Computed example of a mutant assay.
Amino acid sequence: MRILPEGWKAYLIDLDGTLYHGPQMIPGADELISTLRAKRIPFLFVTNNSSRTPEEVAVHLETMGISARAEEVCTSAVAAARYIAEDQPGCKVAAIGEAGLIKALNEAGLQLVQEQPDVVVQGIDRQFTYDTLTRAARWIRGGARYVLTNPDLLLPSQEGLMPGAGTLSAAIQAASGVKPKVIGKPAAPLMDFAIARLGLAASEVAVIGDNLHTDIAAGVNAGCGTILALTGVTTVDNLPEYVKSSGVEANMVCRDLKEVRERICGTNQ
Score class of each variant (00 low, 15 high):
Pro5Leu: 07
Trp8Gly: 04
Trp8Ser: 13
Lys9Ala: 10
Leu15Cys: 13
Thr18Pro: 10
Leu19His: 05
Gly22Tyr: 06
Arg37Thr: 12
Lys39Cys: 04
Arg40His: 14
Arg40Gly: 07
Ile41Glu: 03
Pro42Val: 08
Asn49Cys: 07
Ser51Arg: 12
Ser51Glu: 05
Thr53Gln: 07
Thr53Asp: 08
Glu56Gln: 11
Glu56Met: 12
Val59Cys: 02
Glu62Arg: 13
Met64Thr: 03
Ser67Met: 12
Glu72Asp: 10
Ala77Asp: 02
Ala77Met: 00
Ala80His: 00
Glu86Cys: 13
Ala94Met: 15
Ala95Asn: 14
Ile96Pro: 00
Leu101Gly: 12
Ile102Tyr: 14
Val113Ser: 02
Gln116Met: 11
Val120Ile: 13
Gln122Tyr: 08
Gly123Pro: 00
Ile124Ala: 14
Asp125Ile: 03
Thr129Glu: 05
Thr132Pro: 04
Leu133Ser: 07
Ala144Arg: 01
Leu148Met: 15
Leu154Glu: 14
Leu161Ala: 13
Met162Val: 15
Ala170Lys: 06
Ala171Ser: 15
Ile172Gln: 01
Gln173Tyr: 10
Lys179Val: 09
Ile183Trp: 01
Ile183Val: 12
Pro186Lys: 11
Phe193Asn: 14
Phe193Pro: 08
Ala196His: 15
Ala196Ile: 11
Arg197Val: 07
Leu200Ile: 09
Ala201Tyr: 06
Glu204Gly: 02
Val205Cys: 03
Val205Pro: 00
Val207Asp: 00
Val207Ser: 05
Asp210Arg: 06
Asp215Pro: 09
Ala218Tyr: 00
Gly219Cys: 11
Val220Ala: 04
Ala222Tyr: 00
Gly223Phe: 01
Gly225Pro: 01
Thr226Val: 12
Leu230Ala: 04
Val243Tyr: 12
Ser246Thr: 14
Asn251Glu: 09
Met252Pro: 03
Met252Ile: 11
Val253Pro: 12
Cys254Met: 13
Leu257Lys: 04
Arg261Gly: 00
Glu262Cys: 04
Arg263Ala: 02
